[in-house]
Design a protein around this nucleic acid. Structure first.
Length: 298
DNA sequence: TTCCAGGTAGCCG
DNA sequence: CGGCTACATGGA
């Protein structure tokens, strides 16, 4: 990897299969916001950075080479060959080929487990703009300020010990709805061993990880799969949300509601990259839907 | 007003 | 086990 560093920023040269919108605006993360110049600013690992992409180069502002090697290289999944994965998925699948050419620069971020857990509990029966608002409110009220950057004060994601000691009334101002209770309970469960079990799940088997996650309040099959895919590098996991269920019915002709058959289809056709396939399909389905809505409004 | 959003827990047969 | 429904919230 060809990297240069100067003046509180680093540049990674010659990266393909990378597109900011496909990565940060595809529903896998909720704390990255697009700036007016098209770059994205976000928080992870208690750090604020801004990421831009131009002529094959990734520019990460407000960081160092040390932090890149420590955090951002893995977070952005830069060492994975997405071209090979895309070729494999698109082979003999014309619809998948369309989805991939639509979101060709997508990468699965390797996010922090605790934040991913709470974020996807919030995501249930909710829409993405509001999920982002809920999480920002959570951070502003119960995280700690990091720094002001680009005219905005950024906060850390609240620590598990912090949320574990709250009660339902405390969280009311975050407008989380009925998910408030799930979050407090889940935080207390995870904090029982200071998050040791949660943080060890990427080296556990898929079955062990899945079972533990399902034992947490507010975590069912869909949320558990999202957590495993987006924070534990379990790339075969295939989260079935309303959008993907629609896709599986419309594109692959699987009976509505037959989630077992959908999982079977994903396992047989997408295999070890089921989650990545799912993410291309999710982005595709959502963006197509946005387009048709816009056309109606015109 | 009603419907919808990256679903789950609780309950019932 | 599988099927059903209530669950807050806010935008369209």
């Amino acid at each position: 990897m060809n990297i240069s560093e100067d003046n509180n920023r680093i540049i990674i040269h010659g990266i393909k299969d990378f597109h900011l919108n496909h990565i940060f605006d595809n529903g896998q993360c909720f704390r990255w916001n697009k700036e007016t110049d098209g770059s994205y600013t976000g928080v992870a690992f208690r750090k604020v950075v801004n990421i831009d992409y131009c002529n094959g180069d990734i520019i990460i502002n407000n960081t160092s080479l040390m932090d890149f090697n420590e955090y951002w290289k893995d977070y952005l999944d830069l060492e994975r060959d997405y071209s090979a994965i895309k070729d494999k998925l698109a082979k003999n699948d014309i619809e998948m080929k369309k989805a991939i050419s639509f979101g060709y620069g997508m990468r699965i971020l390797k996010q922090e487990k605790w934040e991913t857990l709470i974020s996807f509990i919030i995501s249930q029966n909710n829409n993405i703009p509001r999920i982002k608002k809920c999480i920002e409110s959570l951070c502003a009220n119960y995280g700690s300020p990091i720094e002001e950057y680009r005219g905005k004060i950024h906060f850390t994601f609240p620590k598990m010990e912090e949320l574990a000691q709250l009660d339902v009334g405390d969280l009311a101002l975050c407008r989380l709805g009925y998910r408030t209770d799930y979050i407090i309970k889940a935080a207390r469960q995870v904090a029982l061993d200071e998050g040791k079990t949660l943080n060890s799940l990427d080296t556990a088997t898929e079955e062990e990880a899945y079972e533990y996650l399902l034992s947490l309040s507010g975590v069912g099959p869909k949320v558990a799969n999202c957590i495993m895919l987006f924070s534990m590098q379990k790339y075969a996991r295939f989260p079935l949300d309303v959008w993907i269920k629609r896709v599986m019915n419309q594109i692959y002709n699987i009976e509505k509601g037959n989630t077992k058959m959908m999982q079977k289809y994903a396992a047989e056709h997408f295999g070890e990259y089921g989650g990545i396939a799912q993410q291309y399909l999710f982005y595709y389905a959502r963006e197509i839907s946005k387009d048709s809505q816009n056309q109606c409004n015109v």
